[in-house]
Nucleic acid binder design. Structure first.
Lengths: 204, 204
DNA sequence: CGGAAGCTTGATATAAGTCAAGATCCGTGG
DNA sequence: CCACGGATCTTGACTTATATCAAGCTTCCG
């Protein structure tokens, strides 16, 4: 099921869970390659994704302070992560609190990111939601040097996108076509190019 | 403008800001009486509320770790808060970290609460959103012993409600009438009664 | 090469928004 | 204490964004 190694590396296949609701975690992760998300399911199969984890991100840094898993975390693509046992962080000598600080910063980032998603879902139009999501992804990948020539990975399914922006896959499809028609995005085979990131950002 | 006193108490009038975007805060607040919220405004006057602060809540506990204000905070009613200077928390002897811990718990609570709002905004129907919001308020007030006989304060305007659940004031009005018609809520003069909280919760 | 997963498209349905007017509540000043 | 005016709530008619259903198409992986 899991392939671990001496360095704390671990692999998950697409759709495999890193954490299920109700579990207690004794470790957080850092994403090395691939994408994951936190989500919640309602009775009738409606799914809403509440956080996205890209390479370089901590996955659920808040587990450091509250081990209980509220929402499940699942791999959106094949995934390679590094386990960071909580004990390892806690046991560090006080002088080296830098680890804790960096986890804390990650928690604040996610708090802030979630507020933005609330604004997006509550008050933005479909076009605006998708534009700002794509920009967010682009920016986050760029800050990890994963953008070259305005191109970056885009392994999400239109269905995944729909579950982030709170729309229907069909509608996501139509909106993406509008963005394409306006020359704001180019999508193909899991890659995305933003010819003019600023123009796209202005839509959000 | 502000009326402070020796105990660190401070009053705000409805619609007065506790914090504006871009400021740096040297204090967090604890709400003593009245309600406040964090929000964000888009160009064309669309407003989305991203957090609600009720009596007993810390207001923006994360300022302890990152002083910069991203989203403004405003009083939704006349408000009485107690200032908790950040230095006061930081300077505490290591043995008494309980203060920091409680602020941290508040941060995690708000992280978790925000995820729920994302789910609500992304995937729930108007009826479900309002039901679960009213339940949330009811539960939070109850945990502070502010519910008596299934009744609690409800000083929010239908316009405020709309800005929380991402709907139009007109539509909020209609949905509230449905809930009234079904005997699930009773609203009058800033008070709310939930004859059957469980039934209401089941809608969310 | 076959089949499932994902994408595209069209026709139609529905939830929620917009606009507009009237009714009600409520604090304020005279 | 009353009268006024603004904020809030209510209601109706109509519009629009997004969802639903359904079918065909394309891609990709085993």
């Amino acid at each position: 099921m899991l392939i671990a190694d001496g360095e704390g590396l671990q692999q998950f296949k697409r759709h495999q869970h890193l954490a299920r609701a109700g579990e207690a975690q004794d470790t957080i992760y850092r994403v090395e390659a691939g994408w994951a998300c936190r989500y919640r399911m309602l009775r009738d199969n409606r799914r809403q994704i509440t956080a996205l984890f890209l390479p370089g991100d901590y996955c659920e840094p808040h587990w450091l302070f509250s081990a209980e898993v509220h929402h499940p975390v699942v791999a959106l693509t094949d995934l390679r992560v590094r386990r960071i046992p909580l004990q390892e962080i806690r046991d560090v000598p006080v002088a080296q609190y830098e680890n804790v600080r960096s986890v804390l910063r990650a928690i604040l980032r996610s708090l802030h990111g979630q507020s933005d998603w609330i604004v997006s879902l509550g008050r933005k139009t479909a076009l605006e939601r998708l534009s700002s999501l794509l920009c967010e992804i682009f920016d986050r990948l760029r800050s990890g040097d994963q953008v070259l020539d305005n191109q970056c990975a885009m392994p999400l399914t239109q269905h995944d996108l729909a579950d982030i922006v709170g729309l229907t896959p069909v509608h996501v499809n139509r909106v993406l076509q509008v963005l394409r028609a306006r020359g704001l995005i180019e999508l193909s085979a899991r890659w995305m190019r933003l010819p003019d990131p600023e123009a796209l950002r202005k839509l959000g």
